[in-house]
């Protein structure tokens, strides 16, 4: 049903003033401005994370001669972070499905996908705040030493991005309920999905830097 609807609905157009020319009045992907704007945001955010992670390695190689982590702090335990990672990464799948679904005009799948992505992201955040941090805090704090500062700043900065992503998700879900999106109009969904995938990809680097690299 949805596919035939797709084939039948034509994209709305308006005249431009050039003789006989009509152009779409809706745009997504590279024809929209928002898509490019989101790439710009991602580029600059990537540099923010890059600078933070570079600072981590810089301090490690400048000051970590006596062992890393310093001051007798244990190497990070990996089981919980890996479980959290799996949950976070898997959240990209429903978001991707939602993004694809609305391009075919499938409202139901859009909402389900967005909701599932939201829940997985929220679980990740909950585990970080309620399980992982309390556990770490029994051993060191942000103010214990530079290692502690780095650990909490980097993971916290990423967590902040998850929070922002969840807020954008809520907004997108609200707009989806209002019926704002269809097979032609969905830049918001597209942009949210790009942002969300970015936050997930960055977590690969954060995980590697903060959790895995101290083991080498």
């Amino acid at each position: 049903m949805t596919t035939t609807a797709h084939e039948m609905s034509t994209i709305p157009t308006v005249p431009t003033g050039a003789p006989g020319e009509r152009l779409p009045i809706v745009a997504s992907g590279p024809d929209s401005f928002g898509w490019w704007g989101m790439w710009g945001l991602i580029a600059t955010e990537a540099m923010l994370f890059g600078s933070l992670l570079a600072s981590y390695f810089y301090l490690r190689f400048r000051t970590g001669a006596g062992g890393w982590p310093p001051d007798g702090i244990h190497k990070p335990e990996l089981v919980l972070p890996l479980v959290m990672s799996a949950i976070l990464w898997s959240s990209s799948i429903p978001v991707h499905i939602a993004d694809r679904a609305i391009r075919r005009g499938n409202q139901g799948l859009l909402r389900v996908g967005l909701l599932a992505g939201f829940l997985l992201g929220a679980i990740f955040l909950g585990m970080q705040l309620l399980v992982e941090y309390p556990k770490i805090l029994t051993e060191f704090h942000p103010t214990t030493n530079a290692y502690g500062s780095l650990f909490f700043t980097i993971t916290g900065f990423h967590g902040f991005h998850v929070v922002v992503g969840l807020l954008i998700s809520l907004w997108t879900q609200m707009r989806a309920r209002q019926g704002a999106f269809d097979e032609h109009r969905h830049v918001t969904v597209q942009n949210f999905a790009m942002y969300w995938h970015f936050v997930d990809v960055v977590w690969v680097l954060v995980l590697f830097t903060v959790y895995l690299s101290p083991h080498f």
Binding site: S55, L59, T63, A146, S149
Partner: peptide, 19 residues
């Protein structure tokens, strides 16, 4: 560092002002 006592640039606590 200034407001919350973190230690990025504090050489006594594993930081480095050159950062």
């Amino acid at each position: 560092q200034r407001r919350f006592g973190f230690h990025f640039f504090d050489s006594g606590k594993g930081g480095d002002p050159l950062l």
